[in-house]
Design a protein around this nucleic acid. Structure first.
Lengths: 178, 178
DNA sequence: ACCTTATAGTTCATTACTGAACTATTTTTC
DNA sequence: GAAAAATAGTTCAGTAATGAACTATAAGGT
């Protein structure tokens, strides 16, 4: 197990204190920004690992599931591997492997494309559709519970803030210098 | 490469559309909540991978770096592996490996504890301190740029919202049912 | 004091992911 | 319309993480 399931709030508190101590040694540190980014990472990671744990009982992991969901949401339930790997932010290499898994489990078919013979068409099967319809609804109460404390206004606020942050990521070139 | 560096805003937009199409097929889906959680994951992941790319030039990855930072922030620059792995949310197994890496690079020492002979004491070296002081300041402009668009008030708002979400994670038992 | 239980760190096997190299196609360019 | 460049998918080798099993030490209960 990763963090022995220590409460997230405790980990956030430890993070703040850690950053405060670093800030004492490096006075120019933009402490609030560091805390915000690390909290974002923490929350995202927490969600992913928890979701993963639930999916594993059904023989899927988070990336298999996301891939399946994209297919589920696609017109005619089909897409090319390279489109998929863009959409779920994974390498083509990995999408080959995920395809293997999903095909082996009968959730997806993989057939050569007729229009472009380099390509493959992945298509969700009836069994895949059924699995999605079985797995997803039990997640609703979890998702609503996570945001139960939030009003519509606050959810919109959060979404807007995250969207602006996404835009900032695109504007900042992370890669340059040092 | 993961997503061929497609802009984050484009990926967020694709996410929204995907969720909207899923919602058309599963009308009870709490769409806004799904989008929020996935945006959080996306942003956290984007930060981590970009940071990782920068660190790699110096022979570290994100988890090595976080471990080193926790030691940097610790009183006397020392901590036990099991404390560290709680703080950075990694397995003890992995902390052994990270210790190996950091020791091999001369950034940390590892000595048996005298009080408790099961334990090991990891301590950041002068070289480790120096590396932190060299690596961290060049990150300041990136971090401030990411939040350049945000006022103090908005940063506080975001922090408060994320904190409440963290508390909600602790309250919700993700593991139960299905 | 002794037996049980818990904790610390490691090793080992396994899972998941990536980048580079390769083959097969399609698109572009001149 | 042929050569060059780009794109799609796969294989392979390497990196990073995990959980289970193991050894050693410490703490608790009676």
């Amino acid at each position: 197990m990763t963090g022995h399931d220590r409460p997230l709030t405790a980990r956030v508190e430890a993070l703040r204190e850690g950053v405060r101590r670093v800030n004492a040694k490096l006075p120019d540190l933009p402490a609030r920004e560091v805390v915000l980014m690390r909290m974002l990472c923490l929350l995202g990671w927490e969600f992913t690992t928890n979701l993963d744990r639930r999916l594993r009982k059904h023989g899927l992991n988070d990336t298999d599931f996301r891939t399946l969901m994209v297919l589920f949401s696609s017109p005619d339930g089909m897409a090319h591997p390279s489109d998929l790997c863009h959409l779920v932010t994974l390498s083509r290499t990995n999408m080959t492997r995920i395809g293997d898994v999903l095909v082996a489990r009968g959730l997806v078919t993989r057939t050569p494309s007729l229009e472009d013979r380099r390509r493959i068409v992945m298509r969700i099967t009836a069994k895949g559709e059924a699995l999605v319809r079985k797995l997803v609804p039990p997640l609703y109460p979890v998702l609503t519970a996570l945001f139960a404390d939030f009003g519509v206004r606050e959810k919109r606020q959060l979404e807007a803030l995250l969207l602006r942050l996404a835009a900032a990521f695109d504007a900042v070139d992370f890669r340059k210098e040092s």
